[in-house]
Design a protein around this nucleic acid. Structure first.
Lengths: 207, 207
DNA sequence: AAGCGCATCCCCCGGACGGGTGAGTCAGGG
DNA sequence: CCCTGACTCACCCGTCCGGGGGATGCGCTT
């Protein structure tokens, strides 16, 4: 039996979700709240397996609630519901601890399947969301590609640079003198068109 | 009509995929190669819509091929096929430009559906892959959470720091003197338990 | 009113860093 | 065989940075 809690400020939608859940075998609804503030103090005793969460809530947002819930009850799986959103909102929700991300206007079967999938340890997301996630990785790849015309030693140096190592520490790791690393660094800056460590790290790790 | 090309070194599997595709309405197979080296010179004239790519290939790997293909023909959608892989392999493939990532032992219908979905602009991935991707974001979120007990001004400073700005530039952006930023930085280092810019940026952006 | 956290600014010091120049070795290609 | 590119090391110089003080004012809590 999967134990769920709903937090959604839209009354008809919240009730529709509750009806959907109680009418399905294997699913159980422990509570339905219209705000994060109302839900938060009850979650400790309810301990749901899956939390259905609206991203847009009056007062504390669904994202903030997700963060808090994940801090205290990491085992709770969070399924984020939302209207149309951009990349920023989606990544913020995923970073806050959401394991699934669905746009609201989905078929009942899709929503129920998502609840079960997230409880199984899956990560249900609508195809627009999956696409954005994939593009996020593509962008990362393109950023790292700027390091393509670095020499082997320069790539080694950049690798340690991106871990926050100082010149001396990189020198020790690579078994050369600090002067050599100094030279590598200058070449890296030239090729990456930057003028400082911080800029190089930011360019490599992406911001 | 979706035009596909297969690159897979396992002979039976390659032929099975080809048969699967030619026997399906709306799908067309332009070629099936057993190595990246064999496929690469032909892709320019074949121009497939979707490229089915094995991750493990003798010689040039599927990941390297994906990188090259995406460089020259960004419109080609890449669907990566693989046996069981870890997070590193998966992220590397996604960064190389793959839009979908499937474990090989999938039902024929799942593979065909994935080809169509990736062509529609979706991002089909098996649930294990989706889970790893989601956990990647969770880890990012936990890293950024270390910045939680920073003050508002310190967060502002960290934001610019992570863009590679130097002290003076941050000062200009925030409309204060460099001395003030200097103070903020010292507090940031203290709270993040680091002793340099590079370490702070690496901790914040994660690596 | 007193205390506290925050933000702002200031001074000082030693070491780290960015940038310029030069130079030796060694492998590979013309 | 010489030339080139990669890697290595060295020295110099001016600036930036990390870390240590201290100071003021503001708003909030007690």
């Amino acid at each position: 039996m999967i134990r769920t809690v709903i937090v959604e400020d839209n009354d008809p939608l919240r009730q529709w979700l509750a009806v959907l859940i109680v009418g399905t075998d294997g699913l159980e609804n422990l509570g339905a709240f219209s705000s994060a503030e109302a839900a938060l103090p009850r979650l400790g005793s309810l301990r749901p397996d899956v939390l259905l969460l609206d991203r847009h809530l009056p007062g504390m947002s669904g994202v903030q609630l997700a963060r808090r819930v994940k801090e205290r009850f990491p085992a709770t799986q969070i399924l984020m519901l939302t209207v149309e959103d951009g990349p920023e909102e989606i990544f913020e929700a995923l970073e806050a601890g959401a394991s699934g991300y669905l746009v609201k206007r989905q078929s009942p079967t899709a929503i129920l399947a998502a609840i079960q999938e997230v409880h199984r340890g899956g990560a249900p997301m609508s195809s627009q969301v999956a696409r954005l996630v994939v593009e996020h990785f593509h962008a990362r790849g393109r950023r790292k590609a700027v390091a393509d015309d670095l020499t082997a030693r320069e790539r080694d140096t950049l690798e340690f640079l991106a871990k926050g190592y100082r010149t001396k520490e990189i020198a020790r790791e690579l078994g050369v003198t600090a002067d050599t690393i100094h030279t590598h660094l200058r070449h890296i800056y030239e090729k990456l068109h930057v003028r400082s460590r911080g800029e190089a790290i930011a360019r490599y790790l992406g911001g």
